[in-house]
Design a protein around this nucleic acid. Structure first.
Lengths: 300, 300
DNA sequence: ATTACTCGATTATTTTTTCTCATGGATATT
DNA sequence: AATATCCATGAGAAAAAATAATCGAGTAAT
């Protein structure tokens, strides 16, 4: 008998966000009375309290917490679907929501995005970098439509296509003792300060593919958010970093930084584009992949 | 201005399922007129056709196809949330939706489920075996709450716990030449008929871990749905199969079938339970995992 | 303690939305 | 040609949602 409607989900979200029915009402362009009525009706139909009315204000019950989680999951999807339909209406083809799972991929992505936007004026591009459940979860959960990642996952429902090969190298500054070496070995980093992006160690290639197998840790480990600052730190001799070779070479015009091979054979990496199998036929999505692969041929 | 409501999603699903507005109206306990009005209003608000009215009846437009996909994804989640709230209301704790990704796991699962149902009378258990996007997708997409699988995936948002170790063995009938052998080698199966569950070869351990590495294919490959029939085929000398040792031993009372080790070292397997990290604290879910692990200690 | 203020619940009323009925045009079936 | 089926539509009825006004309870400041 009771039907969970979009309003209920929107109300519970707004109350959670703004703290009170009154404040939520303003945000939703309704009166406090309206929200109170709507939710009381739902509560009586379900014979279940969403909030406990203690002291002053509302506190979510266990059921309410659950409902809030549902709302936070579903309402954005409804919003997006609505937006998507509006785009259909104006002849726009849609939006490509791209998720990023590796920091330096961003620099690479920018090069693909600009010709893509030119070629597909009717398609919007949105780039996200934070996901509740990681990139794979974001794909399955329809938060994004395409994932840029170095870790493909060949599982039912998803497809991954390699689009870019590169070499991960060590970057050193102008007065670094390793400067000029053909390659570096793990043990040579024991007294170094290693600068990386602020992510877990098991997501950093220099650890998983270089240091950890050799049982080596650097003296210090310093997390830095942005590539620019990271390389300026390296150029000024504050430490060393690990980045894609092409990225280092791009910066070497402006900054005095030098790439050095990691180990005798170097560390080879690939970037993949992942997407839902059901989207495999979507033309503007295929086009993005084609563009990315074409770019590989140019630069490789 | 236009808001996508639950009704719209339900209508588009019902029309797709029943073929016409009239038929859909009956299913939804409404009149054809009501559905027509509701959808026309949405269409005019979005300024976009959901159906093209050609000849007689409705055909989905491109936008309509998209909306249908959204509806098929979201409506079941709303239904389930509603059901879940009702369970909250009667003091029930919830429902555990278990997904299965391996055929013989089912036999194992049954042994866990019955004591679980006894210990948690307020929790319903539902077992699903088919998923649009595979088990991982079903977890991320909230189709299921727990996945039983031999392939764990250590990725953000999901947790996997091993609950059962077993050995995958070859099963042969009473007059089979290999009977009594200590173990079997891949080449010994070239003239055999191999009976397996009807899934892709890359999901069958006997291929991925035994035959394919050796470059061997059996003479014939016969897919069979159920374990019972499969073992009866084996017992009557129609072929050989690969199954967990414990499963074969259970059947060996009734049927004359014998397990033989695959290769000198045997093929070791594990079953994992996977779940969303956000559910890690849900008591009735934890309890299921505990029960499964306790069962391992007994039987191992 | 008094006052002023904020919060949500409630009642009665108004407004809006939804549904139905009755009907009509279009298309296919016999 | 007659008939059945399908969807669209306008008008009116029914239902649902929103509002205004008010209440009581709790809180904070004076």
């Amino acid at each position: 008998m009771a039907k969970l409607e979009r309003t209920h989900l929107e109300i519970i979200r707004a109350v959670d966000e703004h703290g009170s029915l009154t404040a939520a009402a303003e945000k939703l362009h309704l009166t406090q009375s309206a929200l109170s009525h709507t939710m009381r009706k739902l509560e009586s139909q379900l014979d279940l309290a969403i909030w406990s009315r203690e002291r002053r204000g509302l506190r979510l019950t266990q059921a309410g917490e659950y409902l809030l989680a549902v709302a936070n999951r579903l309402v954005p999807q409804l919003d997006f679907a609505e937006e998507r339909l509006r785009q259909f209406a104006c002849g726009e083809r849609g939006a490509l929501r791209i998720g990023m799972e590796c920091h330096p991929c961003y620099q690479w992505l920018l090069k693909i995005v600009s010709p893509y936007l030119a070629a597909w004026p009717a398609v919007d591009v949105d780039v996200k970098q934070k996901f509740q459940f990681g990139g794979i979860g974001a794909l399955f959960g329809y938060e994004i439509d395409m994932l840029v990642t170095p870790d493909p996952l060949y599982k039912a429902g998803l497809q991954f296509v390699p689009v870019f090969d590169y070499e991960q190298v060590l970057v050193v500054g102008p007065r670094h003792p390793l400067l000029g070496a053909a390659y570096v070995q793990p043990a040579q980093l024991v007294d170094e300060t290693l600068i990386t992006y602020p992510v877990a160690v098991d997501r950093l290639d220099i650890y998983t593919q270089f240091l950890t197998p050799a049982g080596i840790s650097p003296k210090r480990h310093k997390p830095i958010e942005t590539t620019d600052i990271m390389l300026q730190m390296v150029a000024s001799g504050r430490g060393v970093a690990a980045l894609p070779r092409w990225l280092v070479e791009e910066y070497s015009d402006k900054l005095n930084v030098t790439p050095i091979k990691l180990g005798r054979k170097g560390v080879a990496k690939q970037i993949f584009l992942g997407f839902r199998e059901t989207d495999a036929e979507v033309d503007y999505l295929r086009a993005f992949i084609e563009l990315a692969r074409a770019h590989r041929k140019q630069s490789g």
